Every structure is written in structure tokens, then in C-alpha cells.
Simulated scan of single mutants.
Amino acid sequence: MGRNLKSGERLRPVDLARGHGLSTQAIRNYEEAGALPAADRTPHGYRTYTRLHARALDAFLALVPGHGHQAATAIMRAVNEGAVDEALRLVDEGHAQLLEDRRTLRAVENALRDLVPVRDAPASGDTFIGPLARQLGIRPATLRAWERAGLVRPRRDPLTGYRVYDGAAVRDARLTHQLRRGGYPPAQIAPLLAEVRSAGGLEPLEAALGTWRDRLSSRGRSLLAGAAGLDAYLRTDH
């Protein structure tokens, strides 16, 4: 947070930067991007800032942890251009994305509970679409459909063009098969598989669920702090 300012007090870029632990170049960049209102200029062309700019910078820095730099800039730019409704819509999008991420986490937790106790596929060598389909009791066309949906990712043999399923692809096919039998639609299976791949398998994913939940909670708190900072800026005389 910047220091307390008297109404009408003028600040140099270095004053505003030091008050927020930033560089003067960062202040200029934020102004040029629209995160700060345009600065007044002295007769010699030097920028001067006021309490309004300090409040704008406070709001922007409060928004960044929850929304990210790009979205926070878009929110502040909309406010500074007088498009407050657009700024609030962008804030709503951030909260909506967090809600969707929470739903994904819940779907992952539910899916893991519903899986039969079969762990990651062992590294038993590559296989092809026919043998894998027979192993799962499905048609090869089903595996091709799962591939088109991004659920299973076999590689292609460079000489024959045949699909080759390594251990990870077999694991994904088995997970997809179990979850489809459990009534999960592909739209819910896709984010689960993305998390499995990111974690490096089911066991690491299960261990990471607590960390994932904590990250979402932290982001929720950051969104609240950002909303409070934006509200304080909107209450400032512009």
C-alpha cells in the first residue's frame, strides 16, 4: 500500500514507485497499459501523479494475485475508461473460473473414489489398438472416439502409422473406460485426466489433492482482497 496522501498532493514517478516497492519503469508500464489513469505532465513534460494514481495502483496490485496480471490490467483499464460494468464483468469471470475449478476438483475427488482399486498401469510394453480394445472389452472405434475427444493420446508409429499405446496411454484408456461405465461424461473425464498427467499418475494426484484445494482457497481469498481493493478505488473521487 502507498503512503497516506493529502488531497491534491503531487507525486513524482519515483515517489509513487518507492511507496509501493516498484521501479519507476513499472509505474510507466502500468500507466501505458491503462492500469493507472493517464498522468498529468509538467511544462517540461515530466509525469506527475496524485492520490488517485496511488489508489489505482493499490487496487491493481490487490487484483493481480487473484486474477493474474493480464486480467487485472483489463479490469483497471476498463475502470479508468469509465466502463465500470465491463470491469465488474471481468471480476465476475475470475470468480466464475474459480467456481469451475472447484467443480473440477470435486469431480476429480468423486471420480477417484468411484474408481476400482486399480493403480497406474505397469510399464509392460507398448500395445496396439486391437489388443487394448479386446483387453477393455470395447470396440477399436471407441478408443478412436476417446482419442478425438483428447481422453487417450496414443502416438503413431513413424513407419506404419499405427497407433501405439504406451503405459500412460493404457492408463488413460483404463481410467476413461471405468469412468464412462460409472456414468461420467467426457467433459468431466477430460480435466481429471489432465490432472493425472500433470501429477504423473494417480498416486501422486491423490497426494496432491490437498495442495490443490489449498491453492483454490488461497485464490478465493485473493479474489476477495482484490474486490476490496477495487471497491476502495471506485469510491475514490475521480
Rank of each mutant, 00 (worst) to 15 (best):
R103D: 14
R213M: 01
A169S: 13
L216I: 09
L63M: 04
Y233N: 01
Q135P: 03
D214K: 09
R18Y: 06
L16P: 02
A141M: 03
E109G: 06
G45P: 01
R139T: 10
R28W: 06
L105N: 07
L99H: 12
D58E: 10
T211V: 09
L224R: 14
L175R: 02
E9M: 13
V170E: 10
R156I: 04
A208F: 00
L16D: 04
L98W: 06
R47N: 02
I129A: 04
A83M: 03
R180D: 06
L52D: 04
G82A: 10
E86M: 09
R155W: 04
P154A: 03
T160I: 07
M1T: 09
D166F: 04
S23R: 13
R113M: 11
E86T: 14
Q25R: 15
A207L: 12
V118W: 00
L216C: 08
L234K: 07
T50F: 08
D85L: 13
V64S: 04
G167D: 14
L99P: 05
G68D: 00
H95W: 14
G125I: 05
T236F: 07
G167M: 11
A54V: 03
A173R: 06
R18T: 12
A228R: 14
L132W: 05
D15G: 10
Q135R: 15
A72G: 06
Y49N: 03
R153E: 14
L61S: 09
H177W: 12
L52M: 08
A26E: 05
A169L: 05
A59Y: 07
Q178H: 13
A59R: 00
R171I: 00
W212M: 05
V79C: 14
A56V: 07
A38P: 08
P122E: 06
A17N: 09
L205H: 01
L57D: 02
V108R: 01
T42H: 04
H177N: 12
M76Y: 01
A38Q: 15
E32W: 04
Y30Q: 04
R77L: 01
L52K: 12
S222L: 04
S198D: 12
V14I: 15
R47G: 03
F60P: 01
A78W: 10
A169R: 02
A190V: 03
G200L: 02
T73F: 02
S218H: 11
G34F: 08
A208P: 04
A39R: 08
V170Q: 15
A17V: 08
T211C: 02
A33V: 00
L223D: 00
T211F: 02
A71G: 07
G201H: 10
L230H: 07
R221N: 09
I189Y: 00
P131W: 01
T160A: 03
D237I: 09
V118C: 10
A87M: 07
A208E: 13
V91N: 05
A173F: 00
A169Q: 08
Q178I: 06
T142H: 02
L112H: 00
R134T: 14
L36C: 10
Q97V: 07
F60R: 00
A149K: 10
D85G: 11
H69G: 08
Q135E: 15
A78Q: 01
L192R: 06
Q178L: 11
R55Q: 15
G94K: 03
L205N: 08
T236A: 15
R148K: 15
E32T: 13
